[in-house]
C-alpha cells in the first residue's frame, strides 16, 4: 500500500471505525430510548436494541483507545467518478423506472454508468444499452412474463 504515503497522513483505521461505531451506537441508544424495555421475563421491543447499542458504543470506545497503538491506516483515496456515476445510475434506474418503465430505465442507467470508466465512449453506451434493453425485455417480460412495465408514459 505504498500509495497512501503520497496523500499525507491518513487517520488510523481503528480510530475511524471506532468513531463510526461509537456514533451509531449512541444513535441507537438515543433513538431507542423511548422504546419499552419490558421486564426481563418478557422483554420489550427496546431491550435487545439497548443491549446492542451499549455493545456497539463499547466496542467503538475500545477501538478509539486502541488506535493509539495500532498502525493500520484508512484509505483516503476516493474514486469520486465511479462512486458518483455508479450510484447515480442506480438511483436513476429507480426514478426513471417509476416514471417511464423498464426500457428507458435501462437506457438511462447504462448511459450514466458508462462514463464511470474513463476509457468508455458514447458508442459503448448505445450498443450496451440497446442490447441490454432488448435482452431484459426478451428474458424477463417475454420469456418469464414478469409484470414489468416496458414503456409507460
Amino acid at each position: 500500500m505504498a500509495e497512501q504515503e503520497r496523500f499525507g497522513p491518513a487517520p488510523r483505521a481503528d480510530l475511524a471505525a471506532g468513531l463510526l461505531f461509537t456514533g451509531i451506537g449512541a444513535a441507537i441508544l438515543w433513538v431507542g430510548a423511548d422504546y419499552s424495555l419490558g421486564v426481563a421475563s418478557r422483554i420489550g421491543p427496546g431491550y435487545v436494541p439497548r443491549l446492542l447499542g451499549i455493545l456497539l458504543t463499547g466496542i467503538g470506545v475500545f477501538l478509539i483507545v486502541r488506535s493509539r497503538w495500532t498502525t493500520e491506516l484508512i484509505d483516503l483515496v476516493i474514486a469520486w467518478r465511479p462512486l458518483a456515476l455508479v450510484l447515480g445510475a442506480v438511483v436513476a434506474f429507480a426514478l426513471v423506472f417509476e416514471a417511464s418503465g423498464l426500457v428507458p430505465a435501462i437506457l438511462v442507467t447504462v448511459a450514466l454508468a458508462n462514463y464511470a470508466a474513463p476509457e468508455n465512449r458514447w458508442i459503448t453506451a448505445i450498443v450496451l444499452g440497446a442490447v441490454l434493453a432488448f435482452f431484459a425485455w426478451a428474458l424477463f417480460v417475454k420469456g418469464l412474463s414478469l409484470p414489468l412495465p416496458v414503456w409507460s408514459k
Binding site: 455508479v86 442506480v90 423506472f97 417509476e98 435501462i106 442507467t109 447504462v110 458508462n114 470508466a117
Partner: peptide, 28 residues
C-alpha cells in the same frame, strides 16, 4: 473487458432487486 461488464452487472442488479418485491424503494 470489465468496462463492458460492470454496466451489465448494474442493470441486472437493479432489475433483480426490483423484482423481489416489485418496488423501486429497494433499488434506492
Amino acid at each position: 473487458p470489465y468496462r463492458w461488464l460492470y454496466s451489465i452487472i448494474l442493470v441486472f442488479c437493479c432489475i433483480g432487486v426490483y423484482t423481489v418485491n416489485n418496488t423501486t424503494v429497494d433499488v434506492l
